[in-house]
């Protein structure tokens, strides 16, 4: 098989797969919320309401597209695109399995193993904020602008602790490539712990997950769309599939973030204590590693839902305070400790 064909298959495959997860997530979110809140949730469309996302999709696609009269048309249309494109493309460097050997050819289960994967993720991730701010601005709605502003301030602020938390991982593993980090997490650490990032960087993990929640605009950091305060934030004026793009983009972001968390801190496709790769054939190991990876990812996706329906929301100034006064000093401290530790042990 040609390399480019494999690349296309991987791109399309993972794109469809991530989209599928995002679609299912809309169902999981509502159903999970309902079960947490002692109610059944959507259960009419199909078994357990599983076709609910489908119904929603049909609804979003068939609704009339309305552009508000005084909106800035170009920005208004560009908003959702600019938001969802980076969301989809960010997954390119995140692995989704070990490797698979087909016809003597070794195919790594990752769209592209960039050796500066971190930088790519940070760069692409910060693109998403344009979609939010342009959408908010272009709608010509005060609530939208407020939402856009909130989102901008929040995403820009939390990129710093996010990056700083990642630096700890880089120190530990000495590489920027997500695949290399994943591979390095095999085996055990100190004899009894799995050799996972979380055990080497516990503080970094907490910082990263908090910053990631903020980047994804999820509760408790969902100020940009704080429903009770600014109606729906930056997508107040959006309808039909443009709104759909925003929503899907958000869920795709969640998948990406969960993927990164798993790849960096939760041992990627490795099972703790057991090296399944040694027992399984090349093809089956590829499939199994893929399954293990996405099991872990789904746990973190569920965490997003779970946290959302447990916590209240921060206030704008508190989010900023937590980011600049709480997370950044802690992240710097984490880097310092890590560096010291590495210096002492190596």
């Amino acid at each position: 098989m040609d390399d480019w064909l494999i690349a296309i298959i991987k791109v399309v495959g993972i794109w469809v797969w991530v989209l599928l997860i995002a679609v299912v997530m809309t169902w999981v979110e509502r159903r999970g919320a309902a079960l947490i809140q002692d109610r059944p949730g959507p259960n009419r469309a199909g078994p357990f309401g599983l076709f609910q996302p489908l119904a929603d999709g049909i609804k979003l696609f068939t609704k009339e597209e309305i552009i508000p009269t005084n909106a800035q048309k170009l920005l208004y249309i560009m908003g959702p695109l600019l938001f969802s494109l980076p969301a989809f493309s960010a997954y390119a460097v995140v692995p989704f399995g070990d490797k698979i050997i087909l016809g003597g050819k070794e195919i790594i289960l990752q769209v592209s193993d960039v050796n500066v994967g971190f930088l790519y993720i940070l760069a692409i991730g910060s693109m998403g904020v344009y979609g939010v701010i342009l959408g908010g601005w272009g709608s010509n709605n005060k609530y939208s602008i407020l939402g856009g502003l909130r989102s901008t301030a929040q995403m820009v602020s939390y990129e710093v602790p996010l990056g700083l938390a990642l630096l700890g991982i880089v120190f530990v593993y000495g590489t920027f490539s997500l695949r290399d980090i994943s591979l390095a997490q095999q085996g055990t650490f100190l004899g009894f712990l799995p050799n996972w990032g979380i055990f080497k960087q516990p503080l970094g993990f907490i910082l990263f997950i908090v910053a990631a929640y903020a980047e994804a605009n999820r509760v408790p950091f969902d100020l940009p769309e704080a429903e009770s305060e600014i109606v729906s934030g930056y997508h107040t004026e959006y309808g039909s599939m443009r709104l759909g793009l925003y929503l899907f983009g958000e869920y795709v972001n969640l998948v990406t973030i969960s993927g990164i968390i798993v790849a960096l801190y939760f041992g990627s496709w490795h099972m703790p204590y057991i090296d399944l790769g040694a027992y399984l054939g090349p093809i089956s190991w590829g499939i199994v590693s893929f399954c293990i990876f996405f099991l872990k990812v789904s746990f973190f996706l569920w965490m997003f839902v779970w946290v959302r329906w447990t916590l209240p929301r921060f206030r704008y100034d508190q989010v900023m305070g937590l980011g600049w006064r709480g997370l950044i000093p802690l992240a710097l401290f984490n880097i310092f400790i890590t560096a010291l530790f590495i210096q002492l042990t190596v």
Partner: peptide
């Protein structure tokens, strides 16, 4: 936060088990 999540998990698990019961009246409160 963890304490709160434990509580919500309790509710989720209880209702998740109740979900599998046949008939329309599965969740006791609804």
């Amino acid at each position: 936060i963890l304490k709160g999540m434990k509580l919500t998990w309790g509710h989720f698990w209880f209702n998740f088990k109740a979900c599998w019961r046949p008939g329309p009246h599965t969740i006791p409160t609804c």
